[in-house]
């Protein structure tokens, strides 16, 4: 049986891995290779690293760090941030990433997804959508440009049509708060999409993960809980397993 994945999702900033709260107030969690080595030793299911220097400041993609991290990683590694061209995809996958995460460039040009899929296959494309709730309505949020007048579900459906492999769904409002995932948002997506959904933003206790799985999430992404609470990935998965959700426990 296919297992639900629990995926640490961390940010790369100034050559450090950091954790944000609602996309701001960054806290350093450690050196990239050392942190990845710990995650590998803890036998996590997968790892997502988003390079916010590349996405936010437009700095070139740091393939040197990606290579160093990939060398420590014997589980799937997804890298995102600043990927704008097919050459960027080559560079990131060539540095040892297994999948790429794209965000801004896909909003500008969803056809970019199809271009990548044709060459590298859908399985390596994670489309990341950041979402904020304003006056009861969900809207796409962009780190650089702020709130956009785009309906996130319409955008996700277009991504699926273009050949996205997975959707990484992040609630900006709940990110780093430990208040739990945005279940209403999740349900909106799981009811309408046929590709796997990784929910992100807000996990503070294992029960939040159970809620998300109950409501159709395929995989759970988190960061705060691993670094600033007592819970390890293994402990969270033990809890999920107790509630009869298939997970990989070692």
């Amino acid at each position: 049986m296919l297992k639900h994945r629990l995926i640490p999702c961390v940010l790369l900033k100034d050559w450090q891995l950091v954790k944000s709260v609602q996309f701001g107030s960054f806290r350093t969690i450690g050196h990239p290779t050392a942190t990845v080595r710990v995650y590998n030793a803890r036998n996590v299911d997968e790892l997502i690293v988003l390079d916010i220097d590349a996405s936010l400041k437009g700095e070139p993609i740091n393939t040197e760090i990606i290579t160093d991290m990939a060398n420590e990683c014997f589980m799937p590694l997804t890298i995102g941030g600043g990927i704008k061209t097919i050459e960027d995809v080559y560079a990131v996958l060539g540095a040892g990433a297994d999948k790429i995460s794209i965000n801004s460039q896909a909003i500008k040009n969803p056809y970019f997804i199809k271009e990548i899929a044709t060459i590298f296959g859908s399985q390596c494309i994670v489309c990341s959508i950041d979402i904020k709730k304003i006056d009861g309505q969900y809207r796409v949020f962009n780190k650089k440009e702020g709130l956009l007048d785009i309906d996130p579900l319409t955008l996700a459906k277009e991504y699926e049509r273009q050949g996205a492999g997975e959707i990484l769904l992040t609630s900006v409002d709940l990110e780093g708060t430990t208040l739990g995932y945005d279940i209403e948002l999740l349900k909106l997506f799981t009811d309408s999409l046929h590709i796997p959904i990784i929910i992100n933003g807000g996990m503070g206790v294992p029960h939040h993960g159970i809620e998300a799985l109950q409501n159709g999430a395929d995989a759970l992404a988190a960061a705060y809980i691993f670094h600033f609470t007592q819970y390890t990935p293994q402990m969270i998965k033990e809890e999920l397993k107790k509630s009869n959700y298939p997970v990989r426990v070692s």
Partner: peptide
Amino acid sequence: KIPHVGWN
């Protein structure tokens, strides 16, 4: 859900 992605 396609692709079949994850641990099985």
